[in-house]
Amino acid sequence: MKTVLNERHLLKRAIEEGYVSTKPTDTIRVLIKHHMRNQLDKTQVRQEVDRFMASHFKFYHPLKWDGVIHRMINSYGKSGDLKLHAVEQAGVTEGELDAIRSLDHVEREKFAFSLLVHCKIANQLRDANANWIEADKDVYDDSLLVLPAKEKRLLIHHLAGCGMLRLPSGISSRKVQLNYVDHQGEPIIVLREFTDFVYHYLKWRGDNRIIECVRCTRLLQRTSNRSKYCRPCAHEVQREQKTHWKRSKWYDGEN
């Protein structure tokens, strides 16, 4: 998931470590909000952001970024939305899961679940969101779909056909409104970690290939009987095993 879920954390890293996120506009956004909250005027904010980017982002080119930063400052100055958002978790209720399960097509279900999680986050980020979500590449990527491109492009059509989505009237909008969001029920899946979150749905659905990493308890899809670790842990364990093997070899060699 590419959406920044914790702007406060991002701001802290930017100020303390000079960190610039993979999408630099995310860092610029939190810096603008921060400086505007500190009552700096537009020119001062512009100078502060410029100074920060010049010293911490090696690909920064003032000419190239001038228009972007200028527009962002104007936009936040106008809207006045300077709150730093922090999404800690997203809960999915039984009613929502049942609605998704009724599609009876695993790939469409994964996509519907991904849309739902993105929608829940969007609702937390914007109070007046009313279950609208932009069905962009991020949603498709998080669905971990195993489908040909042609069929991927028809997923929204299928979901809208089942009455689960409402499409916008405009021709150039990518937004869809979810009709299966349940605001009342008790959540039975609570997501706090948003990497490969679709595995939580597959586990609930009864997919026995979904197992927990023995090291960090993150969910992963078993691809063989030897699968034990999630990808980051697998790298870590491999490195540790190699170090251990080398140490024991040198130790044995000395004796």
């Binding site: 929204i156 809208a160 499409l167 021709i171 150039s172 909008s173 990518r174 869809v176």
Partner: peptide, 10 residues
Amino acid sequence: QAEQNALNRF
């Protein structure tokens, strides 16, 4: 965008 929209609707 229009192509995707046509696919979504029809």
